[in-house]
């Protein structure tokens, strides 16, 4: 628990994301360049999804930074999920620093055509 609190307190970069929704669920892409697969951190707590990761670069010993546009070594961003999403069936892919998450909608929330009765 303390570890989680310490992680939350540390300054982090907010990764850019794309989020789109179709009838069956939500797809999220996040840019996390420099994060190796084992340093990726995905958490689902109640209705909060947190994506995060730690940057690990091959840095030669004794390197001095001359110019840095990426100055923090951690990414973190949280999203609030809505109830119709099935958090038990989230699938994740991570390739070339891009995270792809697919969150399907629960069965009962899948689309169905509503009959309109004419009285």
């Amino acid at each position: 628990m303390n570890d989680t609190v310490a992680k939350q307190a540390e300054a982090a970069m907010i990764p850019p994301v794309d989020v789109f929704e179709d009838a069956a669920g939500i797809t999220l892409y996040a840019d996390l360049p420099g994060v190796p697969k084992d340093k990726l951190d995905l958490q689902l707590e109640a209705d909060t999804l947190t994506i995060g990761g730690e940057v690990a670069l091959d840095v030669p010993e004794g390197m001095d930074a001359a110019h840095a546009e990426v100055s923090l070594s951690r990414y973190r961003r949280s999203f609030t999920l809505s109830r119709e999403l099935d958090t038990g069936k989230v699938s994740a892919e991570f390739n070339h620093g891009v995270l792809k998450l697919r969150i399907p909608k629960a069965e009962h929330a899948q689309p169905r055509k509503i009959e309109i009765k004419v009285a």
Partner: peptide, 17 residues
């Protein structure tokens, strides 16, 4: 990001995907 050592210049371009 650009960094340097006495032996080399190191450049990191963050270009995911």
């Amino acid at each position: 990001n650009v960094g340097g050592t006495p032996q080399s210049v190191e450049l990191y371009a963050f270009a995911p995907g």
